[in-house]
Simulated assay, not measured.
Amino acid sequence: MRPPTTPVLLLLVDGSIAMSVRHLQVLLIYGVFLALSIGLALARRWRRTADRGPGVWRKYPTYIALNLIFLAAAWLPASWHGLALLLALIGGGAGWEIAQALRLSKLERTGLPAATISLVFAAEWLDLPAYLSLWLGMLLMAAAVSALIDARGRLGPRLIGIAGAIVYLPLCLTPLLWLWHGEDGGFRVVFLYLIIAGNDAFAQLTGQLSGGRLLAPQISPGKTIAGAIGGLICAVVLGGVLSPTIGCSFGTGACTGAVLGIAGQIGDMVESSWKRALGINDFSALLGAQGGVLDRFDALLFASPVFYRS
């Protein structure tokens, strides 16, 4: 059972959702973070620095909406299964993008996302042994089906699609659910999410504001060393100031923020290398100016198992 919080503001008349002091702390910190990021965006616009990719003002509304949706899902009562539904949607969208990018068949563009959704959602109810049995069965079945329908000799892309949709995505998304079911689960998920969101936003904003040397031009021509440093600083600061919400010291939170910031940037670079290999700019346009689901949640996917084991 997840521990109760001290209610100070009821969000529903029947009291089934309550806001605690920790909720207010998180929202206040998030508000300050938004104000700072908007200030950086205005400074970048004032200096008329060149954009690399979609402009900040086109991406910001979707970015803020996704952040608020994630926070709400993490804080909803367990009986609503809000986070499981959200993560299943993220997994399904990402699975479809992988199959689409690999130009797989219509059957696989339907079957692989369905498998990802099933595996992510099943983690809400199954214990680890039962979940591993389900995962192994689906993996073997998908491999067998792909081998049987490999009429065009494209077994390689099909196996990559299976690895992405049935191995990588569930491996990265299910730790968020397991975190959520633990002590202070909702706040730990929010802690992770906001650090990654802050790292992403400040890496882009400080990179565009400062310019300078590119971090890895052959992999991602839009990322700069200054941006990576700015994002990492934001992750460290957010980890420190959010530390009381998960019951750890400022130093521990800051160190955790640094680890998650580095993990998120590695995940971002890995996803960028996949796009370069596939010859695409974005995995899809499902999220408008934010690009695809994988484009938006690449860093979170990579950092999630790192935080779960920390």
Rank of each mutant, 00 (worst) to 15 (best):
I17Q: 12
R152S: 13
L140H: 08
T6L: 13
R158H: 11
P244E: 10
V32Y: 08
R48S: 13
A216N: 06
R213I: 11
V56G: 00
T256I: 13
F307C: 01
R296K: 06
F307W: 01
A123Y: 04
V236N: 00
L294Y: 10
L40R: 09
L34R: 11
L238N: 04
L192W: 01
H181M: 02
L9S: 04
L42I: 15
W274K: 05
L24E: 05
S16W: 06
L173D: 06
P4S: 07
I225M: 13
L301G: 09
A99I: 12
R188L: 01
I225L: 15
G211M: 12
W135R: 07
V56Y: 01
A101P: 05
I246V: 15
I117N: 06
L87C: 07
F191L: 01
S220T: 09
G292D: 09
L155C: 07
L83Y: 00
G93R: 07
T5Q: 13
G31K: 03
R103D: 14
A299R: 01
S105Q: 09
T6G: 07
I280N: 11
I280A: 11
K223G: 11
A99F: 11
A88F: 04
V120H: 02
W178E: 02
A115V: 15
S79F: 07
V120A: 01
A201I: 13
L148M: 15
Y308C: 00
G198K: 03
N199T: 15
L9N: 06
R276W: 10
W178A: 00
L214G: 09
A143R: 09
V26W: 00
G231M: 05
K223I: 10
D268Y: 03
Y168D: 04
E108F: 13
A101L: 06
P217Q: 04
P305L: 01
A50G: 10
P175K: 01
L128T: 14
N281Q: 15
L76N: 00
L214I: 07
T206S: 14
C255F: 12
G211T: 12
L294N: 08
G267L: 11
W80Q: 11
G95T: 10
F202C: 06
M141Q: 10
G31F: 10
R22C: 04
L209F: 14
G240T: 02
D14T: 10
G92E: 10
F191Q: 00
A254M: 07
L300F: 12
I69V: 15
R158M: 13
R48A: 15
W135C: 04
A216R: 06
A263S: 14
G186P: 03
V259W: 03
L242I: 03
P129W: 08
A94H: 05
R44N: 11
G211W: 11
R22Y: 12
W46T: 11
V21A: 15
P54C: 05
A147S: 13
L132K: 06
V167P: 07
A254N: 04
G267Q: 11
G251D: 05
L36I: 12
L119Q: 10
L128H: 09
T110P: 02
G156I: 13
P3L: 11
A197E: 04
M269W: 09
R154K: 14
S146A: 15
A43Y: 08
D268M: 01
